[in-house]
Amino acid sequence: MKGIRKRVTIGFLSIVVLLFFSGLVSLFELNHMSTDIESILDSNRHSIELTENMLDAISAHDRAVVNYAVFRDTLYSDSCKVCFAEFSAHIDKARQGASKSTVLMFDSLCINADRLHAVVHELRTSRTIENLILFDTLSNGVSFDGKGWYDRNYVPAYDAASNSIMRVMSHAQISLSPRAEQLSRNAYRAVTPVFISLVVMIAILLMFYYFIMIYALKPIVEMNKSLGDWLRYKIPFKIKSECRDELQELNEKIGSVTNTSKKLY
């Protein structure tokens, strides 16, 4: 392939290559963006699920403590222990996948959970409730106000622990925002190459049109005109051409034909 055909083919191929690459980059960026969205949604879902589990466990623990301390139901003594163990297990699970910045929040949650555990554990190990049921009053003659104990000792510890859970959750949600920002940047990056490629393609098409007009069509028109002039008025066929392609060859051949026929006549 040479000359005009080569140029036209390369011209079209350039446009195809441009389209292909801009499409490829957009596809890559969109794919990247889709993975990022999935990852953000997963993190979000995971964080909500873990928080829900922790809140459920602490709530179950709260119910067990109310039954044990306020309603003096000794059957709930072990239930308090089991519920707290479940709560601790959920905290440990959530902590494993936590980011560096969230670990500090988990430390605070652990301290508050330990405080909560200590309050209930003290009541359970002193066996106050069991003694009250057996002997109606405590050995030192002091009566035990379960509701008062619950309000004074348990509720502040419970509030601190549940607030810590909320803080962990909100921090996990906030930490997703830089990733979302990155995502919006990726969206911009996915669109811009296509936009730029379109603008460049318009420029290339305009250049293509101009070059075809100047370096392919104009010589043909001139040759046609000059050949017509030679046939009609015997004006010498002479076209100045800068290109070294088939048109130049055609120009030279027409030139030699007109010269030969001039010599013949």
């Binding site: 080569k6 011209g11 350039s14 290559v17 441009l18 690459f21 730029i196």
Partner: peptide
């Protein structure tokens, strides 16, 4: 790639 393409295009013609 885009710059290369714009740069090469006139060289062909």
């Amino acid at each position: 790639l885009i710059t290369l393409l714009i740069g090469c295009f006139p060289l062909i013609f």
